[in-house]
Design a protein around this nucleic acid. Structure first.
Length: 509
RNA sequence: UGCCUGGUAGCUCAGCGGUAGAGCAGGUGACUGUUAAUCACUUGGUCGCAGGUUCGAUCCCUGCCCAGGCAGCCA
């Protein structure tokens, strides 16, 4: 066990305990934990698969030939030569394929002419240095087995496909370089989210997916019911009798775990949620989904400045994690999806985010000389075009905007002393727009109750929320990071449907 | 939900008021330590659906369906 020490994050001022070995100078090096070079293979039928199965990722990373091995995967392409064939195999463990050289005389190779793109195969053999360019190792086959054929109707070709076409085959598109890469990045960034918070002493909490509160946020909610929609029980006034429903009241899918996270932050200190969220809005854009994953930290004894520090540190941590642990995938995206991706991500990882107030943003926009479609005036919402100008043209990088007009924001945000703004902040990034939205929460009971009344809320149904201020109230703050939007930013994908394996959007489930 | 663009072969697309084209994929053959292999030949389409205009519609018009982009709502 190495000694722990109290340090401050290099990006945010929050203190936390880390192992001494992780400390570099006055700051913390968050220890990169590269995806393992050796990945376990669990075999179902050794007799059928063959000896010592290893994954393509491991095979390609070999320093010395590992001896007799078996590689299982799906054929990406087959090229025939006189007396033997080249078969490129991908097993999803990494972006690259393993080239197998299959002599037509080896057992099982008789029918290799019918092995088309998409077929599943198991190839036994030895890794040998490849005499040709393009790969370090290749698999010299000693036995070949076709596990499952794929005929000419298999829709994926060696050529590039449009994202639109791939969306029409969600059950097969994960076998492509593009979708497979987004899913590998997604997996590793999910892990990095937990590392970030766990290293800082946050507790991972699970807030309910089903909620009885219908006013959590501005969003529209999906109803959860077991009533017969054709003939629901009705009261004397003809209205649906929700008391007869499963939860004895109306119930919905959550649009945010924030309010529950606040109660847990006011007990555990620093907490975060990471789970699915549902919005029933009929949003028809490239960056909205009806079901998406959101990361929502909530920190007790924290103000808006700490909130912004945490959000910036998290975004940077995830960008660095992607650069360090998914280099091949990011190279791929940089080459085929978004030419400027790597340069942009490296800048984001290094430079501090710009920070301005809403009022300063309005002034910048007004001074830009740009003719915007929507008016720029204090009190008006920042529109997409305004956010794009700020991040893509003016700052050319992420911007954190804070202190928004109170009238445009929810009841729970802390009122600033100027009487007209609240301690809210959004992190805007190029290409995606709003990736983080958060605030310091109103911890003063009278102010909160007044704001709830002003928003037309029933105080009685929020008694528990007011109790947090009634008993031991503390300054606290938090935010929501859209996980898919983060993935869009990191991969350069322009559509949220392409960073989600099975996207749910209006009209599609 | 509003505005815009599109729907032609399995995929990516061209085309045109007069009876359908290419590349790739598939098939056959040749050639080859290939790597988006190459070369030759070849299979394959009621041109999104329904009406209308016309001697004749894949093309023009209307409606509908679907997809994409932008906007609003937000993560």
């Amino acid at each position: 066990m190495s000694a722990t020490t109290l340090v401050c994050c290099r990006s945010c001022s929050r203190a936390f305990m880390v192992r001494a070995s992780e400390v570099v100078g006055p700051a913390v090096l968050v220890q990169p934990d590269p995806a393992p070079a050796v990945s376990a293979c669990f075999r179902a039928d050794l007799a059928q698969i063959g000896p010592m199965r290893i994954k393509v990722r491991e095979a390609l990373a070999s320093e010395t030939p590992p001896g007799e091995i078996t590689v299982c995967g799906w054929v990406r392409t087959r090229r025939d030569a006189k007396g033997f064939s080249f078969v490129e195999i991908n097993d999803g463990s990494c972006l690259r394929n393993l080239q197998a050289v299959v002599d037509h005389a080896v057992p099982g190779a008789e029918g290799i002419a019918s092995v088309l793109t998409g077929a599943s195969v198991a190839v036994e053999g030895r890794l040998v240095p490849s005499p040709a360019k393009g790969q370090r190792w290749e698999l010299q086959a000693t036995a070949f087995r076709l596990l499952g054929e794929a005929d000419a109707t298999f829709p994926l070709q060696k050529k590039g496909h449009t994202a639109e076409f791939l969306r029409s085959i969600p059950h097969l598109r994960a076998r492509t370089n593009r979708i497979g890469s987004t899913l590998r990045v997604r997996s590793r960034l999910a892990m990095a989210v937990h590392e970030f918070f766990q290293a800082r002493g946050f507790a991972y909490v699970h807030t309910p997916v089903i909620t009885a509160s219908d006013c959590e946020g501005a969003g529209e909610l999906f109803r959860v019911t077991t009533l017969d929609l054709g003939a629901p029980p009705r009261g004397a006034d003809g209205a649906v009798d929700w008391a007869a429903d499963f939860f004895a009241r109306q119930a919905f899918l959550t649009v945010s775990g924030q309010l529950e996270a606040e109660t847990l932050a006011c007990a555990l200190g620093d907490v975060y949620t990471f789970g699915p969220t549902f919005r029933a809005e009929n949003s028809q854009t490239s960056r909205h989904a009806s079901e998406f994953w959101m990361i929502e930290p909530e920190m007790a004894f924290c103000d808006l400045a700490g909130d912004m520090d945490c959000a910036e540190a998290l975004v940077k941590h995830l960008v660095r994690a992607a650069l360090e642990r998914c280099p091949e995938e990011l190279e791929f995206f940089n080459a085929y999806v978004d030419k400027g991706l790597l340069e942009r991500l490296r800048l984001v990882a290094e430079r501090p985010f710009a920070r301005i107030t809403y009022g300063e943003a309005v002034a910048l926009l007004q001074a830009s000389g740009r003719a915007f479609e929507y008016p720029v005036a204090w009190g008006e919402n920042l529109q997409s075009e305004h956010e794009r100008w700020l991040t893509e043209e003016h700052f050319r990088g992420p911007v954190t905007v804070r202190d928004y007009p109170a009238a445009a924001k929810p009841f729970y945000m802390r009122q600033n002393d100027d009487g007209r703004t609240v301690a809210a902040m959004d992190v805007l990034v190029p290409g995606v727009g709003e990736i983080v939205g958060g605030s310091q929460r109103e911890e003063r009971p009278e102010r909160l109750a007044a704001a709830m009344k002003a928003h037309g809320l029933d105080l009685e149904s929020y008694r528990w929320y007011l109790d947090l201020r009634r008993y031991g109230t503390v300054p606290h703050a938090g935010f929501g990071l859209g996980f898919e939007r983060m993935l869009m930013f990191v991969t350069g994908e322009a559509n949220i449907r392409d960073v989600t394996a099975f996207p749910r959007t209006p009209g599609h489930a």
